[in-house]
């Protein structure tokens, strides 16, 4: 009898130990099943993190931010997860949809608290992330790694990310303010700008620029051309998923008065798989790319080699020379 009780207790103990408690970025304690085989992402920013840890066979549904519109990314993605297109979620993601896809563990954004509540009712744990700083990107990587039982790998990826950040920071730290270009980051229209509170502004600062929108709160903001003329940025960066192209601004008679347009320093950020301006590990490549634009030759890192190493390390994906050339517009 005693043996039986011990046996039952032991079973409970093992089961209990296998369950992992994760504290997500909303501060919620989430009990995660051991080795989840079917995971989903209701949040475009969370999806890249998932692919860093698990293969496509474990992802049953996800949002793919900016990926469907980018041919090179589609090509590379189909090597990482040949079935990704069928998993793409559109519109507002609902609990039923995720349930129908058989998700056992869901990753979502801070704005998805209600979805998480409903999923909780039907017994599907949901982890919420919302990185807007470098530290929060590291934290999100560790949280997701822990939830997927890949803590060691998470540590390794965070170290890679941090090494690049530190490398750029060391190279740009001593640049005096007068040598830092004033930078404006444009979103999905020519008059939609990244606010000073956004990750994009932190990227600009680390790369040795000054974000002209510092002090502008919130998320993406709509402004008028007069405000752009007041800011008069030296460099304009257009996010990769924007329908706006540098040529649109360069041939516009009003924009001609903006310093960046006068000097031709209007650039579209590259993208591979996911957009380099978003708060995901790829952003270190966006930072390196901007640092090379703002201060050529200053950061002692081989850009091409870093890109290759990044995709190898984070996505276990080997880029061909042709793909790298296409990515860098050569």
């Amino acid at each position: 009898m005693r043996k039986l009780i011990f046996g039952i207790l032991a079973v409970f103990f093992v089961l209990g130990a296998a369950q992992v408690t994760v504290v997500d970025q909303a501060g919620r304690e989430v009990l995660v099943p051991p080795h989840p085989a079917r995971i989903a992402s209701a949040f475009g920013v969370a999806t890249p993190y998932l692919y860093c840890f698990v293969g496509g066979e474990k992802i049953v549904a996800a949002r793919y931010l900016g990926l469907p519109d980018h041919p090179l990314s589609r090509e590379v993605m189909s090597r990482i997860d040949p079935a990704y297109a069928e998993k793409a979620l559109g519109g507002e993601v609902t609990a039923e949809e995720l349930l129908a896809k058989g998700a056992e563990l869901v990753f979502a954004g801070l704005k998805h608290r209600d979805l998480a509540k409903v999923l909780g009712e039907i017994g599907i744990p949901t982890i919420l992330i919302g990185p807007e700083t470098f530290a929060a990107v590291r934290e999100a990587t560790l949280i997701i790694g822990q939830a997927l039982g890949e803590e060691e790998r998470a540590q390794k990826l965070v170290a890679f990310y941090q090494e690049i950040l530190d490398g750029v920071a060391a190279a740009t730290r001593e640049i005096p303010p007068e040598a830092r270009p004033k930078v404006l980051v444009l979103g999905t229209s020519a008059l939609r700008v990244a606010s000073g509170e956004m990750y994009q502004s932190r990227m600009v600062e680390l790369a040795g620029g000054i974000s002209v929108t510092q002090g502008l709160p919130g998320s993406w903001q709509n402004v008028n051309i007069e405000q752009v003329l007041i800011w008069n940025p030296d460099v304009i960066i257009i996010v990769p998923y924007s329908p706006v192209e540098p040529a649109d601004l360069l041939r516009d008679q009003i924009w001609a008065a903006v310093e960046a347009v006068k000097t031709g320093r209007v650039y579209k950020m590259p993208q591979l798989l996911f957009a380099w301006d978003t708060p995901i590990p790829e952003s270190i490549l966006g930072i390196l790319w901007m640092a090379a634009l703002f201060h050529p030759g200053r950061v002692p890192l081989d850009f091409e080699e870093t890109i290759r190493a990044f995709y190898q390390e984070f996505y276990r994906c080997t880029l061909s020379a042709a793909e790298l050339s296409e990515l860098l517009g050569r």
Binding site: G44, G66, G91, T188, L191, R192, N222, I225, Y241
Partner: peptide
């Protein structure tokens, strides 16, 4: 709006629906 890309297209649609003349030439 439901089927528009939430990051690329939806903000533009929402902004248009609230009215504005900032892009008039």
């Amino acid at each position: 709006k439901y089927f528009a890309d939430p990051y690329v297209q939806l903000p533009g649609i929402t902004f248009w629906l609230m009215g504005g003349l900032s892009t008039v030439r």
